[in-house]
């Protein structure tokens, strides 16, 4: 074969460089966090409390915070998103359906920091007054706003997976005299479970990876939250808060462990979604 032309080499170089960035990120996290892997210190990250002044640097409270905030957000957003997706692609009210779809698309474009800002000055005082104690910055507040952040992504993903059901199946259901809702429950829903799972995982990834909402609204106290109104600190917020520390301190090195953990979680989700996508081919009744 003749050698690849210069243009192809250039394009390939760009692709290779772009792909290598994801590896470089991992490499930097590992290398800079390396001191943490010595002497069983790594395990103590998960058992110790966070007491830098006592030489204790455990991040279990932040892990609990991340899991708490993002699961709660998902629990709030999932039914809402499913309902909206059904309204948009199954019930299809002529004007309202289009309006809702456009709104949802638009909502994916709202800056996160703006959403957080509204949360700070609208939802925080509201929660504080309703429940009458604390600052109003807590697990619940952050999860509510985070749910609004991830819902549009989920809705669009769900609508997309509903629309992938072959039209012939839908006609078959019509011919059997199914109402739209029966069609949805018996034909569309069972055959779009993979898509629903994919959208949910994607949203979970966004929730885990988001920094601003938790940073602005969750209160950032270093303690595992036990109730909805407890403040919480997520891994992402922890990185943002500690970054001002001295670069050589152990406290600073800990944020690479947080980064590594976040990388691992989102990597697992990416692989899961790709796995689901691949399984899509052999879908049957």
């Amino acid at each position: 074969m003749k050698p690849a032309p210069a243009a192809e080499k250039l394009f390939f170089g760009a692709a290779l460089f772009s792909a290598s960035i994801s590896l470089f990120i991992l490499l930097f996290m590992v290398v800079l966090g390396l001191p943490l892997f010595k002497d069983g210190f790594f395990l103590r990250l998960f058992t110790d409390p966070w007491r830098p002044d006592h030489g204790l640097y455990g991040i279990s409270a932040m892990i609990a915070g991340t899991l708490g905030v993002s699961f709660l957000a998902l629990v709030l957003a999932l039914p809402l998103s499913l309902g909206c997706a059904i309204l948009i692609s199954i019930i299809r009210p002529p004007v309202f359906g289009r309006l809702l779809e456009k709104t949802v698309q638009f909502m994916t474009g709202i800056p996160t920091v703006v959403l957080g800002f509204v949360g700070v000055f609208l939802l925080v005082p509201f929660i504080r007054e309703q429940f009458g104690h604390g600052s109003g910055r807590c697990l619940l507040t952050a999860a509510l706003v985070l749910a609004v952040l991830i819902a549009p992504t989920m809705i669009l993903f769900f609508c997309d997976s509903f629309s992938r059901i072959p039209a012939s199946w839908l006609r078959a259901a019509d011919a059997l005299g199914c109402t739209p809702m029966e069609k949805f429950r018996h034909v569309i829903l069972p055959n779009s479970l993979q898509g629903l799972a994919g959208g949910t995982i994607l949203a979970m990834g966004r929730a885990v990876g988001d920094t601003m909402i938790a940073l602005m609204l969750a209160g950032n106290a270093v303690a595992a939250p036990h109730a909805l109104l407890d403040p919480a600190r997520t891994l992402t917020a922890h990185i943002a808060l500690v970054v001002a520390a001295d670069f050589d301190s152990l406290e600073f090195k800990i944020i690479f462990a947080c980064g590594l953990l976040l990388y691992a979680i989102t990597l697992a989700m990416t692989l899961l979604i790709r796995g689901l996508d691949r399984g899509n081919g052999g879908r049957t009744w």
Binding site: T211, T236, T266
Partner: peptide, 17 residues
């Protein structure tokens, strides 16, 4: 695959990078 991974990396981690 690597582009998908990069797309999934949280922005704070990219900032940290």
């Amino acid at each position: 695959l690597f582009f998908d991974i990069l797309a999934g990396v949280p922005s704070i981690v990219i900032g940290l990078f």
